Computed example of a mutant assay.
Amino acid sequence: MPAREDMPSTLKRSPKKAQDTYAKAHDAAVAEYGEGERAHRTAFAAVKHSFEKVGDHWEPKRKRGPSDAQAARSNRAQPAETASGVDANASKKHLIDVARRLDIAGRTTMSKADLVKAIQKANSRADRKARS
């Protein structure tokens, strides 16, 4: 499968189900739209509905559904900012739990939006560290 060969490193470090979700969605998108960026975005959108990014890998979400406002929109003609795999629709308690696992300082006093941004930064750092 071409999708498995070109799979992003974050997915290679993730559970098999996340890899299967990406590969199946990518292959279907290639059949529909052709190879390219749109197929990869479609595959990531499928992953983001069932998984959230924690550090340098993807983990199953407690509840399936869109991870941020952009993913919930039906009209994507005007792109909005995404949460980069962080489940921004999760409860604040869940976000604090994720922040604790990522060792983010000051997490208990942060707003929900600040937690999402801090988790995004921690995920980016973990990705860079895992790639080096």
Rank of each mutant, 00 (worst) to 15 (best):
P2T: 11
E5N: 12
P8E: 13
R13I: 01
P15I: 08
K17I: 04
A18S: 05
A18G: 01
A23F: 01
A25K: 08
H26G: 02
D27V: 05
V30A: 08
E32K: 15
E32N: 06
G34W: 12
E37L: 06
H40C: 04
A43E: 12
A43G: 07
V47N: 00
V47H: 00
H49I: 02
E52G: 04
E52T: 12
G55S: 07
H57E: 03
E59D: 09
R62K: 14
K63E: 15
R64M: 08
G65E: 02
P66I: 04
Q70D: 07
A71G: 12
A71N: 07
R73V: 05
N75Y: 10
P79W: 11
T82Q: 11
G85A: 04
A88H: 00
S91M: 04
K92S: 07
K92W: 05
H94G: 08
L95T: 08
L95M: 06
L95V: 03
I96L: 09
V98Q: 14
R100H: 13
R101N: 09
L102R: 08
G106Y: 10
R107A: 15
A113C: 03
A113L: 09
L115H: 09
A118L: 04
Q120T: 15
K121H: 14
K129C: 01
R131G: 10
R131T: 09
S132C: 05
